[in-house]
Design a protein around this nucleic acid. Structure first.
Lengths: 207, 207, 207, 207
DNA sequence: AAGTAACCGAGACGGTACGTCTCGTCTTCTA
DNA sequence: TAGAAGACGAGACGTACCGTCTCGGTTACTT
């Protein structure tokens, strides 16, 4: 078996963990992911390199955790009382979807979110293992919210009953991700609106 | 002024260029993009490092060219007589789109295509400059074919006239790219078919 | 004034001290002084690192103490009744000196003595402070015995009266140490004998 | 066999080699051998670390070469016309030996010589391989000069014919090395003189 | 046919960062 | 409160590549 010994996480320094998170995010936004090094993170955080290597397997893993932590902190501040974070249900599916897709577009246009997210997406595209973790921890929770809202739409008669909602949601999210990641054309609110309309009503004319 | 001198491309060795292409593709598929180094490519190609640095600005640029070259070679073999490569037009838009999307899915499931393409996509996601080149040389030519076929669809009455076809196409391509890059669920022919159907007819019921 | 606190030596664990001695000597003979680390000694002794840092200032200091302790234990076993350890005086100076020099040669050829002693000598050569301690605790007691025996030789008419005995003894000990430390040629009984003879009677012919 | 490939010494940079020599000697005299690191030498010499690791197996090897080079340069300056460097032969053995031993004492009291020499001696005492190299390149050439001068002394009737000169020389050199390395008492010209006198005429009275 | 330019394979160079190891300090828990 | 355990900030280790450079050797154009 020869486990090369696991560190005792109960003795872990919270101070260091947070400093490492902050340093990682700051460096990625300031100088970019490629030029961000583990040595640089350690130096910026005022921490020994070994403290990073002890708790994380890679630069990407550090950034992923830091990014998740940032997301939680942001959500806590926004949600205020810790309210349930989800897609609103006003009864009007089209409006609700446009709202969340516009919010997503705004996030993608905010460097503090965009840069780390791109870096993680890119790394996950190459490294299947990290990709799986990225999907599990970041993507799936988001996508589940879409499934839930679309299911409510089915109950309200706004969505066809014979649809696979896991596929349906990708009609909304896929195009936005495509423009975000591949930068073919600008990501705007108008684009978000168009995607919702096209997806809901289809490309073929209604006979 | 100090132009740092441009090499004379008329005296360039084709033999070396090809060997570098082959080495780059082979290494990326064998050991992955991250562990592929310029030194490694040079060694594998039996070439001096300077020969790579003379003609390409980066590892990614080498791979991009190698990948484009591979695509051309493959197309030439497939196309046989050098026929125009595009989306077929049998008059049935749904069938034609399913055909090409299934073909795309097959490519994504072929490691010889998947691995270099992922690497280039990932690099382009982080590096905007390379991303632009990637989009221009690889993506746009493909997407233009979709626009063309959809326009024909409009003429045939199979596609609504009020659509922005640049956006419409992303309803088809975006979801497939999403599954490919983020590996949320498997990319299958059934999935390709479903995307075409959902996109053409929309998620909302036809009352 | 802030003495950085002295540990209370009355509460010191004898068990740990001895375990540390043993571990230090064992590691030095097994893997060599350079690759012996304080962490390694602590682990081998089943002791916390701080227990070493609390009581000793350096790796060399640990080894010096361990080595002195070893010497005492060995002497106690050899001497049996705790008799005075010194150079014998049979009346025949040459024979007596050959005896002790041969014994010294034997020690130098015994790895359990040679390896730690070399390490300490080497460290003392570079670090003057440790060198002084090494000389005071290990060397001087030995050299004093020579002075005493040579003085007896003077009384017996076997040694010139006008000699500085501190220098005289170095004629005997210096060459042996030279061969031991610098490994120019093998250290043998014959060599020890020759040194005694040459030193006593000189290199120049007796006219 | 799998030699892991030897670098091409014909392409070696003399500039770097010299800069490394100088940096090594400077650091050893300024901050001591123990605190001199390969990284420090590289930085001081304005050289990449790999350039050191490419050509030398260890810190000690760098210093040994630097020290030998220093010796040659010094000798070339002193010798002027590149004359044979050796022990003078005025016909008076005692005077000649005192002269060279005094010169040796002077060297040992000169930090620029003393510090690197101590470091090399110490390292060689622990590491047999380096010790052998140290002896071969530095010690033996010196000792050979003594053998030669003593042999001339035999011819002149100043040295007994039945002596092993390799042993005889150690009666002169051993005591000086002893005081130098172990720092028991100060190394002075008077001491050098005494050693020559005692060694030549012996400790026992001439009856 | 000789001269000359520049590309080529090769690899040494000054560097940066890697991931590991050990240092000496500090903190926590146990006896 | 000494001691076992081990996390911590620090920094050197030896390795791997980076991108630049210099070195013959070999083409392929001049003259």
């Amino acid at each position: 078996m020869a486990e090369s010994k696991a560190p005792d996480s109960s003795r872990r320094s919270d101070r260091s963990r947070r400093a490492i998170h902050d340093a990682a995010l700051a460096l990625v936004t300031e100088i970019g992911y490629a030029r961000t090094t583990i040595e640089g993170i350690a130096a910026r955080a005022g921490v020994g390199k070994q403290t990073i290597y002890r708790w994380w397997p890679s630069k990407a893993a550090v950034l992923l955790e830091a990014f998740l932590d940032l997301g939680e902190r942001t959500a806590r501040e926004a949600g205020g009382d810790g309210a349930e974070q989800g897609i609103p249900d006003t009864g009007d599916l089209e409006t609700d979807l446009k709202l969340v897709l516009r919010a997503t577009v705004d996030e993608m246009n905010n460097p503090a979110y965009d840069l780390p997210a791109r870096a993680l997406a890119a790394e996950g595209i190459i490294d299947a293992e990290l990709g799986a973790e990225f999907a599990r921890k970041l993507l799936e929770p988001q996508l589940t919210l879409y499934v839930r809202r679309l299911a409510a739409g089915q109950d309200a008669g706004a969505v066809r009953r014979d649809l696979d909602l896991r596929i349906a949601l990708e009609l909304l999210v896929g195009p936005v991700a495509h423009r975000w990641l591949l930068r073919t054309l600008p990501l705007t609110h108008e684009y978000a609106d168009a995607i919702v309309e096209y997806a809901l009503h289809g490309l073929a004319p209604r006979n």
